[in-house]
Design a protein around this nucleic acid. Structure first.
Length: 769
DNA sequence: ACTAACGTCTAA
DNA sequence: TTAGACGTTAGT
């Protein structure tokens, strides 16, 4: 099943690395621990909004003067106002598609929100946004962009050598927006910090020197990429309340764990072992590098550390900014993740006021005063962020990697604790559910319909998700992009002998949990392991708490099959999800509430192939009607009077109180229905089967498998109806009190003229050959 | 001149 | 807070 780290949107797509142009011209790439990585373009929102704090705003009057713009309608038109507003130096150039990335090369899905708006898909064309599946991951500067100094375009194609290329390429500063050839810059007191995330983007030396707060290029992604932390499911409030207690216990636990030797599974397959060893090696290397970075002894190291600082800042901009401004403030001692707080600390001195010029200090004096008041809040936010990420991670890891049925032992005994201490730590510390519910709950056996129908324990009702205070936002990016690098760069500059496809084959042997661990190894592995081919099926069965991080992680992987059974996902969460999973085909919502399942009634529901809504509480005929009827929320101009479930092939309705009314709708709206599970549906009768197999129905020919086990109102009569089905291969009538073994035998005998049937189990009729 | 869609504002 | 709207820019 799924490991949470993998579902963390922040880490999922790309571990951010930053290239820092060093004096030698060499480029150092630092891989960032996933928990510190920054979301891609778009994540800048957070950083941007923060950086505004530090920027001097011109009064509107000044702005108007500055650009010689008259007042009135034009002056207040958004775009004009902004380009003048946002910068004292250069108006931002709008970026455009790279036309090369996987997203750019796709065709419009025709299914997403924005596609539906497009005129070509029958929409009104008001939103004017790119298809969600086609949102460029590396938007480039327009061709018309020129250097502010020399007025010329980028010339990197005309020169050889990395450094030479860098000097003549156009770089856009994410802070002041100036586009410039680095070679044209006169000021060299400080180096620019290249943002590897976005082509031709950096924090220019001027801004860097001035100690301005970095912000990642802000690329608004539109409604398709809104922020997950604002979704229901955020646990921040609860965390805040319980913070002190939890921190205390965590510290104690961590202390104990440090003395534990991670156990290994003796049965591990050799293949797996090989990968693990490599992961270990890589991780060790990473940690070594990081340790080295914390004690910078030479100028190069110092530079590298600076780029580390930027990475980290990119994620935790809000908190860290304050730390930078108050370098003497240690991170809270009880910070959940020592690694992170260490880094924060190590980054503070170089970025803090000690490096600021005195006039800058003077300028910011009054603002800082205000910030000191909020110091404590910042610390808390930092902790909360860490906690949420860790909890989500381990919750997913634990919930999903220990199959409900087959794991009585505690997490402490898990043989999977083969990795570094951190992952072990997390697994251990959060071996309880997100809400602190004992893990035993998760180990309850699946309510086998055979033995304990209807006594299944449903997950506790969704606690209304607390509103988060103010939190780092998790930007949802398009589905995972298979990265261009098809080889693994090694330290000495050469590539690993194994190509991506070979690695991918190896990765395909790993569990999702192990993939997540691999994602922490390096940038390249991170990208590879996020490949949607490795995540076609995501299983969150019985994951009690679906968090925003999980949701965004799911979006990033664009699964074809998603199991959310027996979770307490809310309607809002589910609508949000399905709206963003146009490729989703198989959805399991068994054991969820009807309220949640009703999200499928909207027009944004993808065309599912398989739907499991068995044991959904409150799902009766009326609700089936809502589910099957064509959506009513279509916007003018795009009325589609076909059911969103028209492509359903496999439908599971076990344990529902549905009658023939629902079956009629199914017959009408599901022409492809091949597998139908109606077990434990006590309102299903022979008449229902008559309906399903009547002349003129499509189900008569499409039906291949039907499960009527434990249907007490089905009798021998139904078998005569099944003789009409041309393609029926499996009829499950087990435990139907009114169906006799003899009539089943008779059915087999009579059918033998056309088809060979056998009784593999009593009243389980199966076609032979 | 046209289409696509970026980046921002604003009503709900 | 966020989905939707839309002015404007980039490319053809």
């Amino acid at each position: 099943m799924v490991d949470a780290a993998a579902l963390l949107p922040l880490c999922a797509g790309s571990v951010r690395s930053q290239l820092s142009s060093s004096s030698s011209g060499a480029v150092s790439v630092c891989s960032v621990p996933p928990l510190l990585c920054q979301a891609g373009p778009g994540a800048g929102d957070m950083a941007l909004s923060l950086s505004n704090d530090d920027e001097e705003y011109d009064s509107e009057q000044d702005q108007n003067k500055a650009v010689g713009r008259p007042k009135g309608k034009i002056a207040t038109s958004p775009a004009v106002k902004l380009s003048a507003n946002r910068t004292s130096s250069g108006a931002r150039r709008r970026r455009t598609r790279c036309r090369k990335c996987e997203a750019c090369l796709r065709t419009e899905c025709g299914e997403c929100h924005f596609c539906k708006d497009m005129k070509k898909f029958g929409g009104p064309g008001r939103m004017k946004q790119s298809c969600i599946m086609r949102q460029c991951i590396a938007p480039v500067l327009p061709h018309t962009a020129v250097c502010l100094v020399c007025g010329e375009a980028g010339k990197e194609d005309c020169v050889e050598g990395q450094e030479a290329k860098f000097n003549v390429m156009l770089m856009e500063c994410s802070i002041c927006n100036e586009i410039i050839h680095p070679g044209c810059l006169k000021i060299k007191e400080s180096d620019g910090v290249v943002n590897d995330e976005l082509p031709n983007c950096w924090e220019c030396p001027k801004c860097n020197h001035a100690g301005k707060t970095g912000k990642v290029y802000k690329q608004k992604r539109g409604p398709g990429f809104k922020y997950a932390s604002n979704l229901p499911g955020s646990l921040l409030k609860e965390q805040k309340i319980n913070r002190d207690n939890k921190e205390l216990t965590e510290v104690v636990k961590r202390k104990v764990e440090r003395e534990e030797i991670p156990r290994q599974n003796p049965d591990e397959q050799p293949k797996k072992k090989l990968v693990e060893d490599m992961v270990k090696k890589k991780l060790d290397e990473c940690h070594r590098k990081k340790r080295a970075l914390e004690k910078p002894s030479d100028p190069l190291m110092r530079k590298r550390r600076k780029s580390w600082k930027t990475d980290e800042r990119a994620l935790m901009a809000k908190t860290l900014r304050r730390i930078k401004q108050e370098p003497d403030d240690d991170m809270p001692e009880l910070a959940p993740k020592p690694k992170e707080s260490d880094q924060s600390r190590s980054s503070s001195p170089t970025a803090g006021p000690s490096t600021e010029s005195s006039d800058l200090k003077e300028k910011k004096k009054f603002r800082r005063k205000k910030k000191v008041v909020n110091k404590e809040l910042s610390k808390e936010l930092s902790k909360e962020l860490n906690q949420e990420i860790q909890k989500t991670e381990s919750s997913l890891a634990n919930e999903n990697h220990h199959p409900v049925k087959s794991e009585p032992e505690s997490d402490e005994d898990s043989p999977r604790r083969f990795m570094n201490n951190h992952s072990g730590d997390r697994m251990h510390r959060f071996s309880k559910g997100l809400n602190g519910t004992p893990k035993e709950f998760r180990h309850q056996t699946y309510p086998s319909p055979r033995t304990t129908p209807r006594v299944s324990s449903r997950p506790p009702p969704s606690l209304s998700p607390p509103k988060c205070v103010q939190m780092e936002r998790h930007v949802i990016r398009p589905p995972p992009i298979s990265p261009p690098p098809d080889s693994l760069p090694l330290e000495n500059g050469v590539s690993h002998v194994m190509q991506m496809e070979v690695w991918m084959t190896i990765f395909s042997y790993l569990s999702h949990r192990d993939l997540c661990i691999c994602m922490r190894v390096c940038k390249t592995w991170n990208r590879w392991c996020c490949d949607k081919r490795l995540w076609e099926r995501i299983d969150l069965n019985r994951c009690k708490s679906i968090t925003p991080l999980m949701l965004s992680g799911i979006i990033r992987r664009q699964p074809i099959s998603l199991d959310l059974s027996w979770t307490n996902i809310s309607k809002k969460q589910l609508s949000w999800l399905i709206n963003r999973l146009p490729a989703l085909r198989d959805l399991n919502l068994s054991g969820c509430s009807w309220i949640a399942v009703s999200a499928l009634c909207s027009s944004s529901c993808p065309l599912l192939r398989s739907l499991n809504v068995q044991w959904v509480e409150g799902l009766k005929d009326a609700q089936m009607r809502d589910l099957l009827s064509p959506p009513t929320d279509n916007r003018p101009g795009q009325i589609d009077n076909r059911s969103k479930l028209r492509n359903i092939v496999d439908l599971r309705l076990a344990g529902l109180d549905i009658t023939d009314a629902s079956l009629r709708l199914m017959i009408r709206h599901m022409p492809l229905l091949a597998k139908l599970d109606l077990s434990y549906c006590n309102h299903v009768t022979d008449q229902s089967i008559n309906l399903l197999t009547a002349v003129g129905t499509t189900t008569r020919d499409s039906l291949i498998e039907i499960n009527l086990s434990d249907c007490n109102n089905v009798t021998d009569q139904c078998l005569t109806y099944f003789k009409r089905c041309a393609n029926i291969c499996l009829i499950d009538l087990r435990f139907c009190k009114q169906v006799t073994k003899e009539s089943c035998e008779r059915f087999i005998a009579e059918m033998s003229v056309i088809l060979q049937f056998g009784q593999t189990e009593e009243k389980l009729l199966q076609r032979i050959s």
